[in-house]
Structure formats: structure tokens, C-alpha cells
């Protein structure tokens, strides 16, 4: 899977060899459900035959509240892969001065039962 970034949407990339999912950039579309639909469909397929260890890097500069529920949905799908006995590592990246992005990671961490690695850049 590979989706190029646009001014309002992030790049989304899955590297099968490393089992690494990377979401990077801005996620501020007016209609996030539409943007995230193919990613959810891909995740549903991946969940049927996941790697024993999947790394996930979330490196967002901005995201709007329209995206936040979609991002939670991604984490919930990852959580169910985790619960079925596979390792999932979520790296949540935030810039040093970006307390809001750090808190956003903590919000997800409070809901999702996968340990987050908070990565300050």
C-alpha cells in the first residue's frame, strides 16, 4: 500500500519486508472518512494474515478532529491484531515544542491497549 501525501492528507506507506506502516504529514481533510476508507480496508485484509511483529510510525504535523476518529479506528484494528497474539509497536512522533501533539498521543494511549512509544523529534 502506498498513498502519496497531498496538502490536506498524509502519506501512507506499508513496507511488507519490514512490516512497517508509516503515516506521515498532515491529516486535515474535510471528509476524513472517505480518505481513510481504503486504509481501513487494507488493514482488514492485513489482519487476516499479519506479520508476527508490525511496526507502526505515526508522524503527524497536524490532524483535525475529523481525522481523529479515523486514526482511533486504525489503532482499534491494530489492537485486535495485537490481541490475537501478534506484536505491535506504535511509535508516536511529536516535535519537542508540540505539547498538543504529545497530548494527542496520550489521548490514544488512554483508550488503546497497546503500549505507545512516545518519540520526541
Amino acid at each position: 500500500m502506498k498513498i502519496e501525501a497531498s496538502p490536506k492528507t498524509p502519506s501512507v506507506m506499508f513496507d511488507g519486508e519490514q512490516a512497517l506502516l508509516v503515516i506521515k504529514g498532515r491529516s486535515i481533510p474535510e471528509n476524513s472518512v472517505e480518505f481513510y476508507r481504503p486504509i481501513m480496508e487494507w488493514l482488514d485484509q492485513y489482519a487476516a494474515k499479519p506479520s508476527t511483529k508490525t511496526n507502526v510510525n505515526i508522524q503527524l504535523e497536524y490532524f483535525n478532529t475529523s481525522s481523529s476518529k479515523c486514526i482511533l479506528d486504525i489503532f482499534k484494528r491494530l489492537e485486535s491484531i495485537h490481541k490475537s497474539g501478534n506484536e505491535i509497536v506504535i511509535n508516536w512522533f511529536f516535535e519537542e515544542d508540540d505539547e498538543d501533539m504529545q497530548e494527542a498521543g496520550e489521548d490514544y494511549q488512554a483508550i488503546i491497549q497497546i503500549p505507545f512509544k512516545m518519540q520526541m523529534i
Binding site: 471528509n31 483535525n64 478532529t65 475529523s66 481523529s68 476518529k69
Partner: peptide, 8 residues
Amino acid sequence: SKGGGGLG
């Protein structure tokens, strides 16, 4: 309908 669900 647009995804935000009252978070704005």
C-alpha cells in the same frame, strides 16, 4: 456525517 462527531 463528516467524521468529527462533536470533537471540534
